[in-house]
């Protein structure tokens, strides 16, 4: 065989590989385009609007505004309140759902008659639509005159309180925690079921009492699923909206206005697209900061 024929074959092989690479790009193309259209076009448009003067009430005054929208936002006390409210809501719900979720998971992992029904009941709130859940709380539970909580308060001699005016954020946290506890319970329960029973028996042989077994064996086992629960919940909690709209509409004042809700007010109540876009960009930044912390925590947990 001559050397040229060999070289020709090498070239042929190379071009074949190149063709294969090209065709694989071709096949990936639709998916990439679709993803780009869905994720990047809105992002780029939001970025563009955030640097524009753009109010639907004054469409003729449109134009480049530089950092004006950001400047207005960062000097607006409502913005900082919204960030604070977002963090209070997210962290409050996270804390409650993880603690309650762990307790429910521990309980539901025991053997008792009616366990299947109990599990279903604990999981059920997750299937209630957010506006419905919020309305149930608003009208049936937290209403000072007709609500169940008010009636319970009266039963023990306390004055029923108007939750959404006196403690609006606490009420909101309770509603959202009620919705998300099932999620935490579900993940932690499945994690508990994957715990090697040999480990618990070894701990029993080692003289660990039930409480010590929970502290030293069960809870460390749950650390990783708990971080994953926290991460997934945060994604949804940062964008809580329906519950606020149906109960407090961000009030009283700005007491329950979160960043998401602030964007809604700016864009759809004030028709200020520019300002809303700037708030949206800052919300993305906030979400990324939270995500960064969470990813680090998760990575560390998976490491050790």
């Amino acid at each position: 065989m001559s050397s040229t024929a060999l070289a020709g074959r090498v070239v042929a092989a190379e071009s074949l590989a190149r063709a294969r690479r090209r065709s694989s790009w071709l096949l990936l193309f639709p998916a990439v385009i679709l993803l780009g259209a869905w994720a990047f076009v809105p992002l780029v448009m939001t970025l563009r609007y955030s640097f524009e003067r753009y109010n639907l009430l004054y469409p003729e005054r449109r134009g480049f505004a530089g950092l004006l929208n950001y400047n207005l936002l960062l000097t607006d006390p409502a913005f900082w309140t919204a960030i604070f409210n977002t963090l209070v809501l997210t962290l409050g719900v996270l804390a409650i759902t993880i603690i309650l979720g762990t307790l429910f998971a521990l309980l539901l992992n025991q053997n008792f008659p009616g366990r299947g029904i109990a599990r279903l009941m604990v999981i059920a709130p997750f299937f209630v639509l957010p506006p419905v859940a919020a309305l149930i709380f608003k009208n049936l539970l937290f209403d000072p005159l007709n609500g169940l909580v008010g009636w319970l308060f009266k039963l023990v001699g306390l004055h029923p309180i108007a939750w959404f005016t006196t403690a609006p954020m606490i009420a909101l946290v309770m509603i959202v925690a009620w919705e998300w506890t099932p999620f935490a319970t579900l993940i932690l329960l499945t994690a508990l079921q994957s715990l090697d029973t040999d480990q618990l028996e070894a701990a029993r042989m080692d003289g660990a009492k039930p409480l010590s077994r929970i502290i030293y064996i069960v809870l460390p086992h749950l650390a990783r699923p708990a971080t994953i629960t926290i991460m997934m919940e945060s994604i949804f909690l940062l964008s809580i909206f329906a519950e606020i709209l149906t109960t407090t509409a961000g009030g009283p004042g700005t007491a329950t206005t979160t960043l998401t809700y602030l964007i809604y007010i700016r864009a759809l109540l004030d028709f200020n697209i520019g300002g809303a876009s700037a708030a949206g960009v800052l919300a993305i930044v906030l979400a990324n900061i939270v995500a960064l912390f969470l990813m680090r925590a998760v990575a560390r947990n998976i490491e050790t």
Partner: peptide, 28 residues
């Protein structure tokens, strides 16, 4: 079980995964 003075070695070893070797051995 812990008062019988008997120690058990499990088929799966049942080591506590989040503890170091020293912590595993010192747990009892």
């Amino acid at each position: 079980p812990d008062k019988r003075g008997l120690a058990m070695v499990f088929q799966s070893y049942a080591l506590y995964p989040h503890m170091t070797v020293a912590q595993n051995m010192g747990f009892a």
